[in-house]
Measured scan of single mutants.
Amino acid sequence: KTVHVDGVEYRFNNPEEADKFVKRLVKEKNGNVEVRGDTYHVE
């Protein structure tokens, strides 16, 4: 899984860790998540 945040790319081998990371980011930023294939885009 890959997570894109503000143009920075984070790669996770463990999908659960990627999910936790995304949830935390969305809370912090009050942002939205767009999923494209295996990539999460957080804005």
Rank of each mutant, 00 (worst) to 15 (best):
residue 1 K to N: 07
residue 1 K to F: 15
residue 1 K to V: 15
residue 2 T to W: 06
residue 2 T to D: 00
residue 2 T to K: 05
residue 2 T to G: 01
residue 2 T to Q: 02
residue 2 T to V: 11
residue 3 V to S: 01
residue 3 V to R: 00
residue 3 V to C: 11
residue 3 V to A: 00
residue 4 H to L: 14
residue 4 H to A: 05
residue 4 H to C: 15
residue 4 H to V: 15
residue 5 V to Q: 00
residue 5 V to N: 01
residue 5 V to P: 00
residue 5 V to I: 09
residue 6 D to G: 05
residue 6 D to I: 00
residue 6 D to A: 03
residue 6 D to K: 01
residue 6 D to T: 01
residue 6 D to W: 03
residue 6 D to H: 05
residue 6 D to V: 00
residue 6 D to E: 03
residue 7 G to V: 01
residue 7 G to K: 00
residue 7 G to F: 00
residue 8 V to A: 02
residue 8 V to S: 01
residue 8 V to I: 09
residue 8 V to W: 04
residue 9 E to W: 06
residue 9 E to G: 00
residue 9 E to S: 03
residue 9 E to Y: 08
residue 10 Y to P: 05
residue 10 Y to F: 06
residue 10 Y to L: 06
residue 10 Y to G: 06
residue 10 Y to C: 09
residue 11 R to C: 15
residue 11 R to T: 12
residue 11 R to V: 11
residue 11 R to I: 13
residue 11 R to W: 14
residue 11 R to P: 10
residue 12 F to G: 04
residue 12 F to N: 03
residue 12 F to Q: 01
residue 12 F to L: 00
residue 12 F to T: 03
residue 13 N to Y: 02
residue 13 N to K: 06
residue 13 N to V: 07
residue 13 N to A: 13
residue 13 N to S: 13
residue 14 N to G: 03
residue 14 N to Q: 01
residue 14 N to I: 03
residue 14 N to V: 03
residue 15 P to R: 07
residue 15 P to K: 13
residue 15 P to M: 09
residue 16 E to L: 02
residue 16 E to I: 04
residue 16 E to S: 04
residue 17 E to I: 00
residue 18 A to V: 03
residue 18 A to H: 02
residue 18 A to N: 01
residue 19 D to V: 04
residue 19 D to R: 04
residue 19 D to Y: 11
residue 19 D to M: 04
residue 20 K to Y: 09
residue 20 K to H: 11
residue 21 F to P: 03
residue 21 F to T: 03
residue 22 V to C: 14
residue 22 V to P: 03
residue 22 V to Y: 07
residue 22 V to G: 06
residue 23 K to G: 10
residue 23 K to H: 06
residue 23 K to T: 10
residue 23 K to F: 00
residue 23 K to E: 15
residue 24 R to E: 14
residue 24 R to C: 15
residue 24 R to N: 14
residue 24 R to Q: 14
residue 25 L to I: 09
residue 25 L to Q: 03
residue 26 V to H: 08
residue 26 V to G: 03
residue 26 V to L: 14
residue 26 V to M: 14
residue 26 V to A: 11
residue 26 V to D: 08
residue 27 K to F: 09
residue 27 K to V: 08
residue 27 K to Q: 13
residue 27 K to I: 08
residue 27 K to M: 09
residue 28 E to P: 03
residue 28 E to I: 08
residue 28 E to V: 05
residue 28 E to Y: 06
residue 28 E to S: 09
residue 28 E to A: 11
residue 29 K to N: 13
residue 29 K to M: 15
residue 30 N to I: 07
residue 30 N to L: 07
residue 30 N to H: 10
residue 31 G to P: 08
residue 31 G to T: 09
residue 31 G to E: 10
residue 32 N to K: 13
residue 33 V to Q: 03
residue 33 V to G: 04
residue 34 E to D: 09
residue 34 E to L: 12
residue 34 E to I: 14
residue 35 V to Y: 07
residue 35 V to H: 04
residue 35 V to G: 04
residue 35 V to E: 07
residue 36 R to Q: 12
residue 36 R to N: 10
residue 36 R to L: 11
residue 36 R to H: 13
residue 37 G to R: 04
residue 37 G to Q: 07
residue 38 D to P: 09
residue 38 D to T: 02
residue 38 D to V: 04
residue 39 T to E: 13
residue 39 T to W: 11
residue 39 T to K: 08
residue 39 T to H: 12
residue 39 T to I: 11
residue 39 T to C: 15
residue 39 T to D: 11
residue 40 Y to G: 08
residue 40 Y to F: 12
residue 41 H to E: 13
residue 41 H to D: 12
residue 42 V to C: 12
residue 42 V to Q: 10
residue 42 V to I: 11
residue 42 V to T: 10
residue 42 V to S: 07
residue 43 E to R: 04
residue 43 E to C: 15
residue 43 E to W: 14
